[in-house]
Simulated scan of single mutants.
Amino acid sequence: MGTFSLVDRFPAGLTGTEVPWVRADGAKTAPPSAAGEVAQVADQRCIGDGKGMRFPVPVAVAQAVPGLPAGEGWYFEPKYDGDRQVLWKTPEGVRLQSRSGRDVTAWWPDLVAAAAYLPNGVVLDGETVVWRAGGLDFGAVRSRASSSPARAAALARSLPASYAAWDCLAHPAHGDIRGWAYTRRRALLLEVLGPRGRPPIQPVPATDDRAVAAAWLEQLTSLGVEGVVCMRSIIGPTLNRRHVPLPATRPRAVSYDPLVDLPESLIELKRAAEADRVALAAASDEDRDALRAAALETAAAVNAAVTEHAKQKNENRAKVVNALNRAVLHSE
């Protein structure tokens, strides 16, 4: 499969989604330059020593709010449905970390190759997504993330990923810039990636027009946009991120029968089986035989583990299967 532009997958007539920045006055221009109208924040100090960051880096988590904030100084970005990842470009190569800080580089060889052109010293924050069947497919992302590194190359061919970058955390010329204002970091993000990026690595669209953000909430659900993230322009990312979620399309948490007490190893095995199933459905002819054999092997291992767990807990096997399916369906 060839690469494509995430931005170009949005409806062309939806104001703001065809360009990286849309001002409330209607002008479709680049955001403020790092040396322009945000010069008043140039004396802000970076978090840490200002010379760099150590892997892994803690990330800011958006606070859910019931609606779009009003007033001056707010900026808005669509929230894609995928996996949060921090992308590091160092002299040693590209590294990817999950939101929890786990090194997930081996699972995403397509993104590692795509990010090779970035300058050393860049650290980006964003969302890894998979476009499939006319929309962003969160299940495909989780299938890749929960598979094994040994299957990563085949999964990258059958379920290619894109990286939607929304923030620049470190810059070669400035070091750690997490303490800088949003508008200044956004300018550096577009400086590093270009206004439209280089697919499959692209900046997310952004706007200071609340009406555009409202249109995103209303019209982009079917494409896999799960909400809008709102940022204040004058402070850093730790305290200014607000997430306005769409109505839930999948549960975020689930209660499990305490009698079943599923071990994490069994859940991970079931996730691998689901990853094999999704990859097999999308596989090319050259990969199908190998993936089919792997899928059969994993499925047999799941069945054996379910039978053994049911026996140990003196539980009905069907009950264990149902709980296992729920655990995998609702995990992120």
Rank of each mutant, 00 (worst) to 15 (best):
M1L: 09
M1Y: 03
T3F: 12
L6F: 14
T15D: 05
T17R: 01
W21L: 00
K28I: 06
P31R: 01
S33M: 00
S33C: 01
A35R: 09
Q40V: 14
A42D: 15
A42C: 05
D43N: 07
D49Y: 09
R54M: 07
R54S: 11
V59G: 04
V59C: 04
V65L: 07
E72F: 03
E72K: 05
F76H: 03
P78N: 13
K79S: 06
K79Y: 08
Y80T: 14
V86F: 11
L87M: 14
P91I: 06
G93Q: 08
R95M: 10
R99L: 01
G101I: 11
R102H: 05
V104D: 02
A106Q: 06
A106M: 03
A113T: 15
G121P: 05
L124G: 01
V130L: 06
V130F: 00
D137A: 13
F138Q: 04
F138E: 04
A140F: 11
S147V: 08
S148G: 03
S148C: 01
A152M: 08
A153E: 15
A161M: 12
A164V: 14
A165M: 05
W166R: 05
D167W: 07
A170C: 13
P172S: 05
A173Q: 11
T183H: 05
T183W: 04
R196E: 10
R196H: 15
G197R: 03
G197F: 03
V204M: 08
V204N: 00
V204S: 02
P205T: 11
D208I: 02
A215M: 11
A215R: 13
W216T: 12
T221R: 12
G227W: 01
C230P: 05
M231Q: 11
R232G: 06
S233E: 02
S233H: 10
I235V: 15
N240C: 13
N240G: 15
V244N: 04
T249Y: 00
R250F: 09
R252I: 10
R252M: 12
S255F: 08
E264G: 13
L269E: 00
R271A: 02
A272F: 00
E274K: 02
R277M: 04
L280T: 12
D285A: 10
E286R: 12
R288M: 01
L296V: 10
T298K: 09
T298W: 02
T298L: 11
A300D: 10
A300R: 14
A300H: 10
A304S: 14
A305N: 08
V306Y: 01
T307S: 13
T307C: 07
E308A: 14
K311T: 12
K311G: 08
Q312S: 10
E315Q: 15
A318T: 14
A318S: 11
A318V: 12
V320S: 07
N322A: 15
L324M: 13
